[in-house]
Amino acid sequence: MITGTPKPIEEILEMIEPYDNIIVAGCFGCVTVCRVGGDKEVQVLSSTLRLAREASGRKIEIKEICLERQCDPEYLEPMRPYVEDYQAVLSIACGAGIQFMAEKFMKTPLLPGINTGFLGVTERQGEWAERCQGCGDCVLHLTGGICPVTRCAKSIFHGPCGGSVNGTCEVAKDIKCGWQLIIDRLKSLDQMENYGKLKPYKGWDASRDGGPRRILREDMI
């Protein structure tokens, strides 16, 4: 899922300072699962902002909504009839959802209520960790299901670097060496032969180097 963290209330209050009525828009997708931008968070954030603004002597009217997804056009369209009745939309979806809404509603300022994080997993309640950087050229079949691009701080492809000490990365003591994890896993799968099968070089042309990426599926158009 796409993860995120709430922006500090003070920063949001500063963003909404010019406005007297706004929409606070959540998303039932990833940000609901990582408890940062779902229906409950819309309610909590809206109450918080109303309280803060009223205590400062300047009330704010807030319309609370939570869309099925902010990254699909059909779920944004129902907002069209009323979006211009409000001075701004504070979205607590991921950066993709916020931008897509901004593209659809050209005359309404869009404000981000969260900081979008990474593609990750829930390791336990309240703790998420990165697993994929969307490099566009997956090699997990060769690396025991552990991604060298994400799990190695340097994204290197040919085994641990000199900074790997007792299975720990030199970047921080709480980061495991991705390559140590890969080798341990390959050993336990009895697939160490895959270690030698890694590509001589990693092609980054499917990654971010060519600017914003696009997937075109002719069979679906």
Binding site: K40, V44, S47, T48, R50, L51
Partner: peptide, 12 residues
């Protein structure tokens, strides 16, 4: 009880 219920009490 969730956070929004508690905040609603203050709003009310």
């Amino acid at each position: 009880i969730d956070e929004s219920l508690l905040l609603k009490a203050f709003e009310n």
